[in-house]
Design a protein around this nucleic acid. Sequence first.
DNA 1: CCGTATCCACAGTGATACTG
DNA 2: CAGTATCACTGTGGATACGG
Lengths: 118, 118
Amino acid sequence: MPLKMRHNKAPKPPEPCMLTECMSVISGAWAPNVIWCLRAGPRRFSELRADIPPISAKVLSTRLSELEGRGVLVRHVRDTSPPSTEYELTDLGTELLPALDAIVHVGHRLKERQAERS
Amino acid sequence: MPLKMRHNKAPKPPEPCMLTECMSVISGAWAPNVIWCLRAGPRRFSELRADIPPISAKVLSTRLSELEGRGVLVRHVRDTSPPSTEYELTDLGTELLPALDAIVHVGHRLKERQAERS
DNA sequence: CCGTATCCACAGTGATACTG
DNA sequence: CAGTATCACTGTGGATACGG
């Protein structure tokens, strides 16, 4: 049986934790990718899997569920003969796109700069 | 390049992996906080520890080292009688600030919206 | 004051297989 | 097609103690 060594838990949530909490809207493996792949409009489960080859069904499912719970995207179930589901960014989810783009842009330039130095 | 290439896994790194790689500039616990705390100018090790109470010395040290390696910040060692070190954002590191701010802003509004629904 | 060293619990991920 | 169930593994972070 696992021995629980409970120590002091942060009694007060200071500002840094607030930032961390807000950043968690894009937390989890492939979360930014999922958001990014929805930038052009609604997309189905299997399409997202194809968009992001390395992702497993389990992780994609988990991530979509989390992002839906956070209000970043919405799920539309179409009750057709072959079951079909569509995921779409909400208005606030869409607002994350420029931010992700900015980070990626800086990331590119950092890599270029590192390549120069080597 | 005389070195042999490895073919163990992913035959070619598709676009989604590129995005993930770029996003990794802000990866690691408290990394966004560290960047954020440097927004107003240089800051010392112990100051950063005080800014972000829950962070441990080990993690702060690791994170600063990683961020320096990525070119996000620079380290200045002052050889004074009490040893002193200052960390400062580079120009590219500074460019991350608006992006972090945007994400945090959306995060806030997502939380507000969730509060309304409950 | 500014870190590094060591240990370890655990969340998170990935692979595989299975179901409605 | 669109997911869940199970399980094994490992990176990461936290605590603590020590060193330059």
